[in-house]
Simulated scan of single mutants.
Amino acid sequence: MTMQAGALNRRIRIERRLEGEDAAGQPQEAWDPTPVAEVWANVKGATGMASIRQTSPQDNVAASVNSYSIRIRYREGIDDGMRVVLSGVPFDIKQVRMDYAGREWTDLVCEQGGNDG
C-alpha cells in the first residue's frame, strides 16, 4: 500500500538547532537558517488532547501544550532535537516513528506551545 500524494497537503520545514557557542561561550540558542528538509506532510491534531504543563518549577507558570502527528514520506536523519515549522508556527519534535518494514512513511510526534514549538 503506497502513500497517497493527496493526503500530503501541507508544506513543512524541518529545522535543526545550531551547534557551538556564542561570543560569550554560551551554547547557541538559535535554529539553523538552512532547513534539514522542506517536504509535503499530513498534519493531524489530537482532538481534545491539549494539556496544561508547568514550564519550569521555579516559574510556577502553566502553558497549554497541543499534540500533533505529522506524517511525511519515509525519511531518515530526523531526530527529536529538531523542530517542524508549519506556516511560521514551530512544533517541537518529541518522537520520530519510522515505517522500517515498508519504508513508506515517517511520523513526527510533535508538541506546539511548550518551548520552541
Rank of each mutant, 00 (worst) to 15 (best):
V65C: 07
G77E: 04
D92E: 13
V65I: 12
W31I: 02
R53I: 07
T34N: 10
P57T: 10
A23F: 13
Q28C: 09
S51Q: 15
P90F: 05
D80A: 15
A62E: 15
G81H: 15
N66S: 12
S51L: 08
V36W: 12
R53H: 08
E21R: 13
V43T: 01
R71A: 13
L8C: 02
A50N: 04
S64I: 02
E15V: 12
V39Y: 01
D92V: 02
S69Q: 14
M49E: 11
V61H: 04
D80H: 10
E19N: 09
R17T: 04
W40V: 02
V36F: 11
G77W: 00
E21M: 13
D80I: 00
E38L: 13
R75K: 01
A24F: 07
D32R: 07
V65G: 03
A30C: 15
D59W: 11
P27Q: 05
R11W: 10
I72M: 03
V39K: 00
Y74V: 08
M82E: 01
N66C: 09
D79K: 10
G81L: 10
Y68A: 00
V39H: 00
V89D: 04
V89I: 14
G20E: 13
R73W: 05
V84E: 00
A7F: 14
S87A: 14
P57L: 12
S64W: 08
R10G: 03
R73Q: 12
D92C: 12
W31Q: 01
A7Y: 05
D80F: 02
G45H: 09
V43Q: 06
Y74D: 06
E76F: 09
V65Y: 05
M82G: 02
G81C: 04
I14Q: 07
V65L: 07
V36T: 11
T34C: 06
V85I: 14
D32L: 02
E38M: 09
P27G: 02
R13P: 10
Q54M: 15
D79L: 04
A62P: 09
E21P: 01
I72T: 08
R11E: 05
P90A: 13
V65P: 01
V89A: 04
T55F: 13
P57I: 13
R11G: 05
E76I: 13
D32N: 15
R83M: 12
Q28S: 15
I52P: 00
G81T: 15
S87C: 03
Q54T: 15
A50S: 14
R73I: 08
K44R: 14
I14Y: 10
I12E: 00
T55H: 11
A7E: 10
G77T: 08
V85E: 03
